[in-house]
Write a protein that binds this DNA or RNA. Structure first.
Lengths: 291, 291
DNA sequence: TAGCACATTTTGTCCTAGACAAAACAAATT
DNA sequence: AATTTGTTTTGTCTAGGACAAAATGTGCTA
């Protein structure tokens, strides 16, 4: 029963958790977890349970918790910690958002689209993004931590939102003038929904934004900024983006772009960033876009 | 002049080329390339030129060329090889597609949308995808190899296409019945445009398809297939997906899904795959979707 | 109480050189 | 032309150590 069906190589675990190979090995050395089985070649084979445990740890790290503490805990300990975090955060609340979550759990595409559309119509584009979509995404994260929603359901919702935003985006007039903003994420960051939300808010405010989507190499961001003659480059970092690299990456881009080009950074990943290089601005929530 | 501005750690090179750390080190040992500088800590520092060279090699590998051959070549050698490949492949041709490329190079969003819309109206959804979008993406790859188009321009086009498809998708009736198809890509594969194209073709044929988007862990694909009660799971693999893992990944998924659930695989990555496990079907081009 | 400078701990990434199996290729056979 | 066999190529994984950047803790001052 407790026996696992499939075993995972260190490479698959890296992919499925976002935790680097080297990190996994050094954790094993330092904290004594996870200690996987080995095949006859001596290679690590992680069980389903270990994979799941690592995914939970990863998720908790996104809340600012550090490995040294988390890796001491067993499954029960993680349960407790998750419960604690949930109680510390504002409850899901918002009748509206609870409804959406229920519809997602019911896998009802049509109902979902209707619900979104209602909110959109009553709130208008900008408030819809700020007061419905953004809190919804938070709520989904919490629901996952509470075991109420599956990862694939998050993907499902995400796709539905992407589709919804694209279609409504088209109904807004396309701004043509200045200022121009370039939106992208760096390689390693694949969460592009944030970009789309930003694009939508900007367009609702009549700002001309160009979205390059995810995983754009730095030199290409620079080149695009030059050729599109933008005044600012907007990057988003999800909580999944490796904490360590964020500041360095931003500084590197800052060094490459001309000083008159501003850099805006947003997303959950930059939440806890303190000091930023000159000419870099942070927007914690979309409301505070520096425009 | 020839001096490089910025130096790249092995980690950044991995991210920007998709070539693994270990692979980079083993290439250096075996083929004597690339040999980066070192910092005082002894860590590798790759130059811009080396990075660019590796990106070109990576791209050529997508055409089926192997490292042993490619790593002997200098920049001039790569030039020759790229030229050879271009001449071997059908020329870009198609007045239509040349036009689109020009508009992309001019960064003209409005013109691009108009062009796409013209094709879409005259060809209908399915032919638009098969005879315009698919060849266009091929042509872009070639134009990149010929140095005629920048990577960021590919991203730009990609985003425009995604936006276009989402908006037109909405004009089609949403099929509700059977058969149901689940679409996704596995972790490591972020090229989701193929999924969207597949979704669009399927919907044009009245098939009910559910798109989970990119980077869905295998167990979640399985879970979603069960809960959505789909008859088939469709995966796409771009040429950027590590060749080595494709067969293994497909087999692993095959082993996890119940036998009555079919698996369809598509995309450039599966082009050269010969034998497939029982119950796995390949669609080389979208025209041959097994439905 | 808040801000700042400094010391300590934690943490992720990178190093070397060797090993091995799976995939790709080439050659020979049915 | 398709299948079997042998050979070469190739990517991924191993170990234990090292180091700097980030995060945290402590003491001092305004």
């Amino acid at each position: 029963m407790g026996q696992s069906r499939t075993l995972h190589s260190i490479g698959s675990v890296e992919r499925d958790t976002g935790i680097g190979r080297d990190t996994l090995r050094v954790w094993e050395r330092r904290y004594g977890f996870p200690v996987p089985k080995r095949n006859d070649k001596g290679e690590r084979l992680y069980s389903d349970e270990q994979l799941r445990h690592l995914q939970r740890i990863r998720r908790l790290m996104d809340f600012g918790l550090r490995p040294g503490r988390l890796l001491k805990l067993d499954a029960v300990g993680l349960d407790a910690l998750e419960a604690e975090i949930l109680s510390a955060r504002p409850a899901i609340g918002e009748e509206n958002i609870r409804h959406v979550l229920e519809v997602v759990r019911a896998h009802d595409s049509v109902g979902l689209e209707q619900l979104l559309d209602e909110s959109y119509r009553s709130q208008g584009m900008e408030d819809f993004i700020l007061k419905t979509v953004a809190p919804l995404l938070h709520a989904v994260g919490e629901a996952w931590a509470a075991g109420e929603i599956a990862v694939y359901e998050e993907h499902y919702l995400s796709q539905q939102l992407i589709h919804f935003l694209h279609t409504r985006l088209n109904r807004q007039p396309r701004p043509t003038g200045s200022p121009r903003i370039l939106l992208a994420t760096l390689p390693g960051e694949l969460h592009t929904l944030g970009l789309l939300m930003t694009l939508t808010v900007l367009r609702a405010r009549g700002v001309h934004a160009i979205n390059l989507g995810g995983e754009v190499p730095m030199d290409q961001v620079k080149e695009a900024a030059r050729r599109f003659q933008v005044e600012a480059v907007g990057l988003t970092f999800s909580s999944a983006y490796p904490h360590h690299s964020i500041r360095g990456d931003i500084e590197e881009l800052r060094a490459r772009l001309p000083a008159e080009t501003q850099i805006w950074v947003g997303g959950e990943g930059v939440w806890r960033l303190r000091k930023l290089p000159e000419g870099v601005f942070k927007f914690q929530s979309l409301e505070k876009l520096p425009i």
